[in-house]
Design a binder for these strands. Structure first.
Length: 282
DNA sequence: CGTTCAACCTGGGCGC
DNA sequence: TGCGCCCAGGTTGAAC
């Protein structure tokens, strides 16, 4: 699940590894074929052996570890992409079974663990030029926390796509996923089925404001955890923002503003939740 | 070009 | 209890 607030919370939770030197990397046997790892585990481990972790940052829905290798010049970037069920942990994982990667540090007891039940997540290590080429501004829109109305309008106003679908496109804004797309459009009072080209500059402004507002609040509450086999913080606690969801997962419940029924529709194979009364279709 | 869709995986929940 | 089916927070590349 992890979207922007969940990945941000994970990054903050593993900030303790900044400055540490990597002692040893393990790829548990039973998972060697799952969860795409690039380059191959042996090469990745040899490059990271003795490297210093100089930074831990979030890029959209990815967590990035900047590392200074011991044996070569130039920074490397270790990129964790949790996709649906990936977690970055500094405490024992929910099950040993789905541990994909364990990083032990020198002079530090707790290892960094990448755990991923479904195994759709990825671990990628690249040098700076590759990092910029693959994840620079051409590949990824501005961070959704810093969404900006005029810029959003400029990007989408010619498109016939439904606004909900556009919000899931990481080239438009980086970090929004299926949960927060519904929540953002509810706050902005816009029907998710509205075509982008019908949105006014003012509507785009409301979406941009709602985006940063919702995501900021979700980070404050450490993200959304739904069900038990789901997102956890780096010390394996559930987030709390699910308590504040106004529409997501609330099919047929009453809208908090108008008491009408919240509806669920499918857009490009994925559920969208909204209040047909509060959210205007343009 | 823009958009849709299946595929990548595991496991929980449901109906029968 | 068990089987088959549907569903799930994301991304990609092929197909339309």
């Amino acid at each position: 699940m992890p979207e922007l607030p969940e990945v941000e919370t994970m990054c903050r939770g593993i900030a303790c590894f900044r400055g540490k030197i990597i002692e040893k990397i393990l790829f548990p046997k039973h998972t060697r074929r799952a969860s795409p790892i690039q380059p191959r585990p042996k090469i990745l481990a040899s490059k990271l052996q003795g490297a210093r972790i100089t930074g831990i940052t979030r890029l959209g829905k990815r967590a990035i570890l900047s590392v200074e290798p011991a044996n070569e010049n130039g920074n490397l970037f270790l990129i964790f992409e949790p996709r649906m069920t990936g977690l970055l942990l500094r405490v024992p994982p929910p099950t040993e079974k789905h541990v994909r990667l364990v990083v032990h540090m020198q002079k530090y007891q707790d290892p960094l663990i990448f755990w991923d039940r479904r195994g759709l997540g990825t671990i990628t290590m690249v040098n700076r030029p590759t990092f910029i080429a693959r994840f620079g501004n051409n590949a990824l829109g501005p961070d959704a926390l810093k969404a900006n109305g005029p810029e959003l309008y400029k990007k989408i106003h010619r498109s016939k796509r439904h606004i909900k679908v556009a919000l899931l496109d990481q080239k438009i804004l980086a970090g929004i996923g299926n949960i927060y797309a519904s929540e953002i459009l509810y706050l902005a009072r816009i029907d998710p089925r509205t075509r982008c080209c019908r949105l006014s500059q003012d509507a785009c402004e409301r979406i941009a404001r709602a985006s940063s507002q919702i995501l900021r609040l979700a980070i404050k509450h450490e993200g959304s955890s739904i069900g038990d086999e789901t997102y956890r913080t780096a010390d394996n606690r559930p987030g709390r923002y699910q308590r504040f969801h106004k529409v997501y997962g609330r099919d047929k419940a009453k809208c908090g503003k108008c008491k009408n029924e919240i509806q669920r529709v499918i857009q490009t194979q994925r559920s969208t939740f909204f209040c047909p009364n509060c959210q205007i279709r343009y």
